[in-house]
């Protein structure tokens, strides 16, 4: 013990020293990213190289980072919040912590893909699709509308993820599109078809591959991630007919914090995501839709975003519906 004591003390001293240098580094642009490092790490590197701006990124879950920013308040070290979905951006905006983006930035994307109050902007799009098993289902048998999924022949064969933000956004969009009564009726029809309830899109895709279910309501790009790991992953996407609520296009997006120490660099970062480099990156590397007209080619094998024509709804409207959507899901027994 006597000999241990100096060792213990010096370890504590090391800890203290590390604490001192681990603090908030005011010289760097700080990005909180709900998007995975494996997906956007290279984009951040090329931003550094192209602009000479030094960036540090805190990676985490979008919603958890939104809650963190809300608890940090004005003391947040974050300059930019780069989120996996519009919902988390809406939450930070509701907390009054985002600042208005310049009109020139906002105008780069269609009004549907940005905040009506101009505090966040969509940076890439993803379409809701029905994923199906290529082993047990012919694409011709996959319905073209989510409304057909209540048909008894899909009983026990569907998977969905009520806790997932993009599923909730889709239900909110359906409510705006066809009304609450029809949406609730549809949810009850789905519930009657004994769906498998999953946590998120990846779990849904995996459940299809495992043979637990044949069809799943997911975002279109997950199957590409899974194919990168397992080239023969037995799942494919079926895009729904134009105007169907099930064809909703969601976005990942970014906003700048009011408390940002480096607002100029933050603006450069957001503009970079919307410039040709960023837009092409999303198309090539994350298999998402570019949202800025003419800036980038869409990924191979995807229908043009104009053809998707989900319900004609601005994503900014969905945030206000979230609470009542969750209540409706609770009511019909599909709790998040």
């Amino acid at each position: 013990m006597k000999r241990l004591l100096p060792i213990l003390l010096s370890l504590l001293a090391i800890g203290g020293g590390l604490a001192a240098c681990g603090g908030d580094d005011g010289d760097k642009l700080t990005v909180y990213s709900g998007r995975n490092e494996k997906l956007i790490g290279d984009l951040v590197e090329s931003f550094k190289k192209d602009t000479g701006v030094d960036v540090e990124v805190r990676y985490g879950d979008s919603a958890e980072l939104a809650a963190t920013i809300a608890e940090e308040g004005d003391a947040s070290p974050a300059d930019v919040f780069f989120s996996q979905d519009a919902g988390a951006l809406g939450a930070v905006e509701q907390a009054g912590l985002l600042k208005a983006l310049p009109q020139a930035t906002l105008d780069k994307v269609d009004a549907r893909w940005r905040d009506p109050k101009g505090q966040w902007v969509g940076t890439s799009g993803r379409s809701r699709v029905i994923a199906y098993s290529t082993e047990r289902v012919q694409e011709g048998d996959v319905p073209d509308s989510v409304f057909d999924l209540t048909d008894p022949r899909y009983k026990g064969r569907i998977g969905l993820a009520p806790p997932n933000a993009s599923f909730q956004a889709f239900v909110s969009a359906m409510r705006i599109d066809v009304g609450d009564a029809k949406t609730e009726e549809w949810l009850r029809g789905i519930k009657a078809n004994a769906p498998k309830l999953l946590e998120n899109n990846i779990q849904t895709e995996e459940a299809i591959a495992r043979g637990e279910i044949d069809l799943g309501l997911v975002n279109h790009y997950y199957v590409y991630e899974l194919r990168a790991e397992r080239p023969d992953f037995p799942v494919a996407n079926h895009f729904l007919k134009a105007g169907d609520p099930g064809a909703l296009v969601n976005v990942a997006g970014a906003g700048i914090l009011k408390s940002a120490d480096r607002p100029r660099e933050a603006q450069r970062f957001v503009d970079y995501l919307l410039a040709v480099q960023g837009q092409q990156y999303f198309a090539d590397k994350t298999f998402e839709y570019p949202l800025v007209d003419g800036e980038a080619e869409r990924p191979d094998g995807l229908p043009p975003i104009e053809d998707l024509q989900g319900p004609d709804i601005a994503l900014g409207e969905l945030g206000g519906k979230l609470k009542s959507t969750l209540e409706m899901l609770d009511r019909v027994g599909l709790s998040a």
């Binding site: 800890g15 203290g16 590390l18 604490a19 001192a20 681990g22 603090g23 908030d24 958890e64 809650a67 963190t68 608890e71 940090e72 308040g73 003391a75 947040s76 070290p77």
Partner: peptide, 27 residues
């Protein structure tokens, strides 16, 4: 863990900001 983390975010940013996001706070 998320509750522990958010509680320390809450207190550190209010009363111990120099410690926020340091190794000391993590430990």
């Amino acid at each position: 863990g998320i509750v522990i983390a958010l509680s320390l975010v809450f207190f550190a940013t209010r009363v111990a900001e120099p410690l926020y996001q340091t190794l000391a706070l993590l430990v």
